[in-house]
Amino acid sequence: MSIASRLGVGRPVRTGANLTPMIDMTFLLVVFFILVSRITSVEQVPLDLPSPSNPAANPAPEAPRLVANVPADEEGEAIAVLLDQRSYRLDESGLDDFTRTVAGRLEAIPELQVNLRADRRIPYEIVEPVMDALARAGALAGRPEGVRVNLVIQTEERGEDT
């Protein structure tokens, strides 16, 4: 057997890129975006947030948070409070239910804050009972200092994205 034939000279050369790292990275990206889109669809209910002129820079500190959404329909009337894909009616029994749910969550996670996202058009008489319900939830969960509520607003650089 000649040396040339033992080295395989003359056979077609198999060339191929190693795709394994690329596939790994792509799968990681897919998983990331799946999770993010799930979280944002729960928390970021599309609504028209209030956008005060000249917003003050007073961002809330990073902490575990619960997002309560109060969206409005086309006429600007509030429909319900949305929390974790559940909808609570804005009457007394619905808000009692809401209070108990928030209180349960507050007991489970001590440093939990509540972000309140409410549509800019709804009247204050709708938002006030929701804030009352959050305050009652803090008392129910046995927090002497009350529950930390953050108001979510729209700063101007986002423009007409909402």
Binding site: L49, P55, A56, N58, P59, A60, N115, L116, R148, V149, N150, L151, V152, I153, Q154, T155, E156, E157, R158, D161
Partner: peptide, 8 residues
């Protein structure tokens, strides 16, 4: 993007 929360 562009959302800000206030302590209340």
């Amino acid at each position: 993007m562009g959302e800000q929360s206030y302590r209340m």
